[in-house]
């Protein structure tokens, strides 16, 4: 579930980067999610090799916990991206605010 949520976040951020990025550092956000997705994919393969078919039938409690983790991971990714965006301040808004 965490892998699935991260993959969707990666796809959405890539589409947004392609359509509306104007130095909003969306490329960095999508690369971050793609990197995490690739890592979780390896983790999922290792888990599948251990559990076999059981891997696809998780308990509801585990699935909910994984979904909650996935959403938290997406939120953390957005926070990292936001901090970097504000730090680089591509449109100079923070600088303008500080100069007032």
């Amino acid at each position: 579930m965490t892998l699935l949520i991260t993959v969707f976040a990666a796809i959405i951020s890539t589409v947004l980067w392609y359509r509306i990025d104007e130095d909003r550092k969306l490329g960095m956000l999508s690369l971050m999610y793609w990197g995490a997705s690739a890592m979780w994919l390896v983790d999922a393969i290792a888990e599948y090799m251990e559990l076999k078919a059981e891997y696809f039938t998780p308990a509801l409690k585990d699935m909910l916990n994984d979904a909650y983790l996935g959403i938290s991971v997406v939120a953390l990714g957005l926070i990292i991206w936001l901090i970097r965006l504000l730090y680089h301040d591509p449109k100079g808004k923070i600088r303008q605010l500080l100069e007032r």
């Binding site: 990197g35 997705s37 690739a38 990714g77």
Partner: peptide, 20 residues
């Protein structure tokens, strides 16, 4: 730079999972 973003981002999110 692309590789750095993927590695740092992925590692940070994975580290969070381990804390979880």
């Amino acid at each position: 730079g692309w590789l750095n973003n993927m590695l740092w981002g992925g590692s940070a999110l994975l580290a969070f999972e381990h804390v979880w």
